[in-house]
């Protein structure tokens, strides 16, 4: 897969995850867009790879955040 494609795929994945973001989708989307636009002129493939890895890390963190939030809410609600 070309790097360009990988970046787009990452952006889409993050956007999808943003739909459940506690502060709202719009909040998440604007920040995500800004973060990607900031590095739009990056040409060095090594650096791009590093950024993608960071993005993947964020994806994992978000999934964990949602899981924990759900677990804690249910635990509190049902006193489990």
């Amino acid at each position: 897969m070309s790097l360009r494609k990988e970046v787009i795929q990452l952006y889409k994945t993050l956007l999808h995850l943003g739909k459940d973001y506690p502060s709202g989708y719009e909040f998440f989307r604007t920040r995500l867009h800004k973060a990607f636009m900031k590095n739009k002129d990056e040409k060095d493939p090594e650096k791009i790879k590093k950024m993608i890895a960071h993005g993947q890390y964020i994806v994992k963190e978000l999934e964990t955040l949602y899981m924990l939030k759900k677990y804690r809410t249910l635990k509190r609600r049902y006193d489990l």
Partner: peptide
């Protein structure tokens, strides 16, 4: 299933 059976995975975009 009770709450602590496992940690459900997140449905990823490609899988959807």
């Amino acid at each position: 299933a009770d709450l602590r059976l496992n940690e459900p995975r997140y449905a990823t975009l490609p899988n959807i």
